[in-house]
Amino acid sequence: MNPLAAIGRNFITFLASTGRIVLFALSIICHCLQPPLYLRLILRQFIEIGYHSLPMVGMTTLCSGMVVALQSYTGFARFFAEETVATVVVISMLRELSPVLTGLMVAGRVGASMAAEIGAMQVTEQIDALTTLSTNPYKYLIVPRIIASIISLPFLVLIGDIIGVYGGFMIGIYKLNFNAASYIFFIVHHLEKIDVIAGMAKAIVFGFLITLMGCYQGFNSRRGARGVGLATTNAVVVASIMILLTNYIITEIFFIN
């Protein structure tokens, strides 16, 4: 076995699947812009993707807000502690932690279930059946999920921002004995519009990526339980990597310059 050939083969496979995903994404965008849109299905996906993710997102951001407050105090904020802790919590939650953690958690919850559901439909010929019943499977299965996720993710992130900052506030008041009024003053003082907007812009992109990967892997799932299992794993892993990668790129676009 020639190691160079193996590397080359893997590289070509990687390029080919990248190309397929891009084409898939383009055709989804085209389908999103053309009627008909299934409103019932979009609403159902809102509940599934947005509403049902709330507890998980709230829990994650609350804990990380608390932890950031604690660590920034013990680490480097003995002097001017109130102002520093408030600033660090607000900036790190709004810009990075809330969008990334929300994205990763939703990828694990929603992306996986999309890949499994669509994969199982593919395996049991339900997607073929949709086509024969004059229903475009892209429009019926993917478009509602894409629309619901790119709209609900920013709201989830916004809620995550609020809960995360509140988590930091609780630690500041009850554990580090800060003055509540001045802590709130510093939060408001350091709260910038661009931070909120950047977080929500990230959320829109992450929402698209999560659904894209969930649906792509489900549609291309191989037969059998193993095929569907593999599709689910791939959906979560690839979506997570893409989230971390695009997160860096968007941060650079918004904050460096």
């Binding site: 339900q126 019943l133 475009n136």
Partner: peptide
Amino acid sequence: EAYMHKFGVLFQGGALFDSLSVWENVAFG
């Protein structure tokens, strides 16, 4: 897609939509 209206297809495993009830499956098309 429009041509598909004229066809009925019975799949090997049935290929019923498991997220829908029986009558919704029949009425889907």
